[in-house]
Design a protein around this nucleic acid. Structure first.
Lengths: 246, 246
DNA sequence: CTTCAGATTTTGGTATACCATAATACGAAA
DNA sequence: TTTCGTATTATGGTATACCAAAATCTGAAG
C-alpha cells in the first residue's frame, strides 16, 4: 500500500478574513446595491463609525476600490463613489461587447454538461429573482449567473475583469433599464442568448450577445448623454463572424 | 468682446503627488524593470527603509498593487511580487489576443494623421531602443509606443486594462523572448503589424496582431509549462474576419 | 550530529496620534 | 441684509505604537 505524498492540502486553513477584507466586501456590496450612489462622499471617519473599525482598515479598503475604479479621489479631495463619465461608459460598453460575446462563445463551446445544467439553473433563479424586485437578491442572482458563465468559459481573468466592468456601469445600467419597454426588450434579448447557449450554437450566442450589449449601450449612453447635455458616439466594436482557427 | 465663462481650468493646480503615489510608482517601476522579480518578498519594513517612508504609505501602495494583480498576499503570508500561474498566463494571452487586435483595428480605422505620425515616431524610437539593450529605456519606449496606440484607438479603459495585463506577463514575456530566434520572429511580426497599420489596412493589422500574440503565447506558455512540469492548452480566442456593422 | 524546547526577533494587522490644509461657523462692520 | 475676517472644526496624509502570530535562533539533551 503506497502512501500518498503529503502536500499542502493537509494544512489547516487559516483564511480568516482580515478586517480590511470585510470592509472591502461591505463597501463593494453597498455600492452594488445602491446604498452608496455615484458621487457620494466616503468620509473615512464616518465609515469608521458605521463599520466599527479604525481608519487604517478603511483606508486600505478604499485604496483597493480606487484601483478597481469603483471609488475615485481626485486632487486633494477625499474619496467618493466613482461617477462614470460618458467617455468611460462608452469605452466600457465597447469592451463589454467584445469580451462578453467572447465569453459567451467560449462557454457555449467548452462548458461541460454539468456546467450547462448549472447555467440553466442559475438562469431560472435569476428569472425568478427579477420578478421579486428585491435589489440585494437580484445583485446576488446576477453575480451567480455570471459566475457560472465565466467558470465554464475557462478564462478566469476575463471573468474577473468583466465583473469589474459591470460593477462600474452598474448604476447606469440600473437607471437606464428601469423603463418598462427596455426592461422587456432586455429580458427577451437575454432569453435569446440563453437559448442559443443551451442549443450549443456558438455563433448565434455570440451574435445575440453582441446585439444585446449594443442595444443596452445605446439606451444607457443616450440616457447619460441627455443628463449631461452632451452627444455620444455609438460604440463600434470590431465585430465579425466567428471563425475557428484551430 | 464677450467674456469666456470661468471654469475649472483656472484653478491652481495642486496635484502634488502624495508619498503613497510616489511609492506606488517606484514599486511598479522596480517590478517592470526586473529589480523585483516574481516571488520576491516585499517586506514592509524593508521597503520603508529603502524608500524612506513610513509603513502607512507602503501598505497603501501595496494594496493598490494587489488590486492590480502585480502583488499577491495569500493566507497570512506577507506580500510578494506575483508569480504568474500557467492558467492565468493562458487566460491573459487569450485576452490580449482579443483586445490588442481590437485596439489595433480601432487605431488603424480611427487614428488622426497626427496620431499616425506619432505612432510612426514611437515605433522608430522603440526600434532604436531595442538595439541599445538598456532595460529601463526599453520599458519606457514600449510604454510610449503602446500609449500612442491606445490613445488613437479611442478606448481609454481598454488601454488601461491592456497595460495591466502586459505588466502581469512582463517577466514571462521577457524571459521567453530572449532566445535569438524568437526575438527575430517577434520583431518581424511587429513590423508586419506596423506596416498594415500605416497602410490603414485594418483587417490585415488585426490578423497580423492575432498571429503575433498567438505565436508569443505559444512560446511563453510552453516555456512556463516546461518549467513547471505541466502541459498547457493552447489559447483559443474566438477569432474572425473583421466585419463592420455600421 | 540531530532533535527539540524555549527564548528572541520579525512581521503583518490594526489602532491611534499628529499635523497641515480645507471647510464651516460665527460675530462684527458696513 | 451682506460681506469679511477670525476662530473652530473636519478631513486626508502620514507616522508611530501595540499586539498576536510566525519565524528564527540558541542551548541542552540524546
Amino acid at each position: 500500500m503506497q502512501r500518498t505524498p503529503l502536500d499542502d492540502s493537509l494544512k489547516v486553513s487559516r483564511n480568516q478574513p482580515t478586517l480590511r477584507e470585510m470592509v472591502l466586501d461591505k463597501l463593494r456590496q453597498a455600492i452594488m446595491s445602491f446604498q452608496l450612489l455615484p458621487g457620494d462622499r466616503l468620509v473615512e471617519r464616518d465609515l469608521c463609525k458605521r463599520l466599527g473599525v479604525s481608519r487604517t482598515s478603511v483606508r486600505e479598503a478604499l485604496r483597493h476600490l480606487e484601483a478597481e475604479g469603483l471609488v475615485e479621489s481626485e486632487g486633494g479631495r477625499g474619496p467618493r463613489v466613482a461617477v462614470i463619465t460618458l467617455e468611460d461608459a462608452r469605452d466600457i460598453y465597447e469592451l463589454r461587447c467584445v469580451l462578453e460575446s467572447m465569453v459567451v462563445q467560449l462557454f457555449t463551446q467548452k462548458a461541460t454538461d454539468k456546467q450547462m445544467a448549472d447555467f440553466d439553473h442559475a438562469w431560472e433563479i435569476l428569472k425568478a429573482t427579477l420578478r421579486s424586485g428585491d435589489t440585494v437578491a437580484i445583485v446576488n442572482a446576477v453575480s451567480d449567473f455570471y459566475g457560472v458563465l465565466y467558470e465554464g468559459a475557462g478564462n478566469r481573468v476575463a471573468g474577473q475583469f468583466l465583473s469589474l466592468l459591470q460593477a462600474r456601469v452598474n448604476y447606469l445600467r440600473a437607471t437606464s433599464v428601469s423603463q418598462k419597454e427596455r426592461y422587456l426588450d432586455s429580458f427577451q434579448e437575454m432569453t435569446k442568448i440563453v437559448e442559443a447557449i443551451k442549443a450549443r450554437n456558438a455563433e448565434a450566442a455570440h451574435e445575440a450577445c453582441v446585439e444585446h450589449i449594443k442595444a443596452a449601450a445605446n439606451v444607457a449612453l443616450a440616457a447619460l448623454a441627455e443628463k449631461q447635455g452632451e452627444s455620444v458616439e455609438p460604440i463600434s466594436p470590431p465585430v465579425s463572424v466567428a471563425r475557428s482557427l484551430q
